[in-house]
Amino acid sequence: MRPMAYMPPVMFAIVAVALALGLLIVKPKEIPSALIGQPVPEFDLPSVVGTPHGFSNADLIGNVSIVNVFASWCLPCRAEHPLWVEVGEGGLVPVYGLNYKDSQENASKWLADFGDPYTSIGADLNGRVGVDFGVYGVPETFVIDGQGFIQLKFIGPIDRFALENEILPMVQELQALMVAEGAE
């Protein structure tokens, strides 16, 4: 018997335990919504090179808004990006970008290539703000109400169905709520 021969099964056991925990704890697609109903974390990020202003939590007060976490190295972000361009052009709701752990050069090239739908973008170089937001993977999208509370979190790339049936209805509902509260 050679102890080395037992290395592969032992290593596999570690991987298998991790995968099992992954299924049990990480719960694909239904990842923590602990932040729902919570105020957005405090942050003040510089702008991505080539865009006019940075992005801080103060920007999220006073208006219903969307925060989209993206990165140039993230493939699904490209898939969803045209929809954000569309939303940006529609002008119904401001979309803020959180550029997650990205190189400045790549990010500004990416924006030039695929369009910049964002009202403003914060460069989250070390990912600290992303962690505060509870970002699981890029892309992720948050809907923030007028008081700066997170009301919806969407994980993964959005598609038209999610946009039109989940995200935009939530935005409209929150906007209607603001109007109603303003009228009182």
Binding site: G22, L75, V131, V135, Y136, G137
Partner: peptide, 12 residues
């Protein structure tokens, strides 16, 4: 994520 609770994506 399992061991530290940190969420990352590994990309290109």
């Amino acid at each position: 994520d399992l061991f530290t609770g940190k969420k990352v994506s590994v990309g290109g």
